[in-house]
Amino acid sequence: MNAWRTPGIWVALLVILAIGLMPIVLKSDATREVVFTVLLSVALASSLNIILGYTGYVSFGHIVFFGLGGYVGLYALNVVGLPLWMAISAGGLAAGLLAFLLGKAILRLRGAYFALATIGINEAMRAFVINFPAFGGAIGISLNFRIYREYGGATSALWLTYYLMVAFTLLAVALSYAIKTSKFGLGLIAIRENEDAAEVMGVVTPNAKTWAYVLSAIIPGMVGVLFYFKNGNIEPGDAFRLHFSIELLVMVMLGGFGTVVGPILGAAGYQRLRGILLTTPVLKDIQLVVAGVLLLLIILFIPSGAVGWLRHRFPKLRQVLP
């Protein structure tokens, strides 16, 4: 496919790979932790961008897929005793299935109604899991320590999850690009720009939207397993934290809604900013205030995000910056 001859996407993938290799070269656990968080954000923001940025549906409670994936994964590891790769697949499958079932119903709603419904689903899921004994109710699931031993002990298990995280991030970005440059992606963007016009031109909107939702849910489900495997335990308040969901939206907005590179820059930039705010003594107590003010300034004055702004300013970039 000639879409893959564009240098922009390869630069993006290589940069991610280079950042991903950094902790391995430095053999630094601290760097690994920082980079893990950034990569996780990149993978989640890029996935969210498929339904949010390409299709134009504001999935406000997108974290539900991450949380559900985590729960299914830990359950598979701990209770069923499946190996990690199968747990990851199960997490992705569960998230995709949930998106498929929900998609047919809630993607009929437009605008803020859809956003509200996704919030409702996330909250309902959290409340349900608290009452679901198999998932440990309000306490959640703690990974049996002995499972790490099957992966060479805690340290090497941490490195293993890290390698996998790098791989999934690359996969998420590649998937996002593949969708954006495909016929399917063109249909999604048509829906975003004018759903009625898209229908009249023959885009089978209910199916396209549902698949976009499913594709944007699978990777969050899989990295949910990774994250909570690494974390060692999962609890309802953490797994379905609406705040994290909104942070993902902010990352996509920050970098540039509907572009491939935008969520990467947005996620990295947001986490970097958070790091600075949390480690600067003057700002530490008011980090939320500073972040809020910055977010507001961006929404008010650069609503298309960094990449969107660049593409608008320099139309030539549209060719090279996916």
Binding site: G187, I189, R192, E193, A197, A198, M201, V203, V204, G258
Partner: peptide, 17 residues
Amino acid sequence: PLNELTVRENVMVGACF
């Protein structure tokens, strides 16, 4: 019009779907 798409892409939507 699909505002954010180019004119060519607009027409391609018609041809593709």
